[in-house]
Each structure stands twice: as structure tokens, then as C-alpha cells.
């Protein structure tokens, strides 16, 4: 076994994951090797069905893998019980979804407060912290708006605020710009790059959108359940 370096946030070796669909089995990950460093924003790209979403699900601790090794901040998630893993996610992982997944009956402020409430923080404290983060992502005047009163870009910024509010060490973003126009997509990625990324935090973005590649420190290309290349670049 190769030991990961200390500044490595995500360390995957020969990770295999298969899904059973009736009588047949689909191999979604066929031995993925990947390292993501602290303070790094990495973009996972590749054709549909190549295993990008499965890989971030494994890394985020919401999906168990079949074989191999995957450590996130030196934690072997596979060895954790469901309860510990759920608690671990609540403290260490932030999610940004393609469809935002904001609760439609809650205001922006309430939506952002949810991860803090899950951690048992009081409502008033949660709302104070949520307000601060919403101001940081430029939604000062939309604190009490419900999702259906916000544009797509604003909703995604609320989702980013929700992913950041509890100060997780890993943020996973699944197609964060695919439902947005080019300009809004750039704005959202700029917010992710500026607000989400820090020296002790790692951001993994899954996307098809080549217009946002320039925000990545590295780009990992996947094909057929494997990482086929990892390219470094100077992020803007």
C-alpha cells in the first residue's frame, strides 16, 4: 500500500464500484486512482456515464465502493458505520448540486441554516452565520426570498452558501453551472473559487462545461470508469 502525503485530502487507489441492474452488473468505477491536495480545486471531466458522479459520491461518503482504498482526510470512510459516516459528512462535506436542491418552502436564509441546524447549532446562531455567508456571496438583499423568487444563478449562490456555512473541508459540486447561462456560470465558478477554496479546503467539481475549465488547478479526465489523465494548469 502506498501511504498518502500529508497534504493530500483525497486519496483513491484502485477503487471499484459496480451497480446491479437486474440480471446484469454495470462497472461504474474500474480501478480509479486519484489524489486531490488540500487547497486545490480539481475538475472531473468526461463523457456521460464515465463514472464522475459515482466517484464524487464515493469521495463524499454517500456511496460505498466495492474494492480498493479511498481515504478522505486520512479517514477510511468504508470502515465507518453509517451513523459515524453521516456525522462525518455533516461536519466535513459541503454539497453543490446541479438542480440546487434547495428546500422550496424555506427562505434563502433558512436553507443556508440547514447544515448548522443538523449539527445542533441554535437557530439564532445558525441564522447569524448564514446571513454572513449570504452577504459574502452577494445575496444581501435576497435573504428572505424563497427559491422560486430567485434566478438560477442566485439559487446556485444560495446552494454554495449552504455548502460553505458549516466550514467543511471538502466541497463537492455536481454540474454546478449546467443549468446556467455562460455569464452566470462564470460568476458562480468565481464565487466557488474565491469563497470556497482555502488552504485547508479541497473543492471537487464535476462538469461537462468546458467554459469553466480555467477555474481549475487540475483537470482529471475520466473515461469508462477510469482516470485517464490529470493535467495541471494555472487557474484564473
Amino acid at each position: 500500500m502506498v501511504t498518502e502525503r500529508r497534504n493530500v485530502a483525497v486519496y483513491c487507489r484502485s477503487v471499484v464500484k459496480s451497480y446491479s441492474t437486474g440480471p446484469s452488473t454495470v462497472l461504474a468505477l474500474r480501478g480509479v486512482d486519484l489524489e486531490v491536495n488540500l487547497g486545490e480545486l480539481i475538475i472531473l471531466v468526461g463523457p456521460s456515464g464515465c463514472g464522475k458522479t459515482t466517484l464524487i459520491s464515493v469521495v463524499a461518503g454517500i456511496l460505498d465502493y466495492d474494492e480498493g482504498e479511498c481515504r478522505v482526510f486520512q479517514h477510511d470512510l468504508q470502515a465507518m458505520g453509517q451513523r459515524d459516516k453521516t456525522r462525518y459528512r455533516g461536519q466535513n462535506v459541503g454539497f453543490v448540486f446541479q438542480a440546487y436542491n434547495l428546500l422550496p418552502t424555506l427562505t434563502a436564509l433558512e436553507n443556508v441554516s440547514v447544515p448548522l441546524l443538523i449539527l445542533g447549532i441554535s437557530k439564532s446562531e445558525a441564522e447569524t452565520r448564514s446571513q454572513e455567508i449570504l452577504i459574502q456571496v452577494g445575496l444581501t438583499d435576497r435573504l428572505h426570498s424563497k427559491p422560486d423568487q430567485l434566478s438560477g444563478g442566485q439559487q446556485q449562490r444560495v446552494a454554495i452558501a449552504r455548502a460553505l456555512v458549516h466550514q467543511p473541508r471538502l466541497i463537492v459540486c455536481d454540474e454546478p453551472t449546467s443549468a446556467l447561462d455562460a455569464d452566470t456560470g462564470q460568476t458562480v465558478m468565481r464565487v466557488i473559487r474565491e469563497k470556497a477554496l482555502s488552504p485547508d479546503r479541497t473543492v471537487i467539481v464535476v462538469t461537462h462545461d468546458s467554459r469553466i475549465f480555467n477555474f481549475a488547478d487540475r483537470i482529471a479526465r475520466m473515461e469508462d470508469g477510469r482516470i485517464i489523465s490529470v493535467e495541471s494548469q494555472v487557474a484564473h
Binding site: 463524499a60 453521516t86 454539497f95 436542491n101 447544515p115 443538523i118
Partner: peptide, 16 residues
């Protein structure tokens, strides 16, 4: 269900 899934992913336990 999608929102319950979101809450679960964000760390809400079955008990919550």
C-alpha cells in the same frame, strides 16, 4: 424524497 436525500447527504441522521 429528493429533499430528504439532500438532508441525509448533509448529515441528517435517520433519527432526525
Amino acid at each position: 424524497m429528493r429533499y430528504f436525500g439532500t438532508l441525509k447527504a448533509m448529515g441528517a441522521t435517520n433519527s432526525i
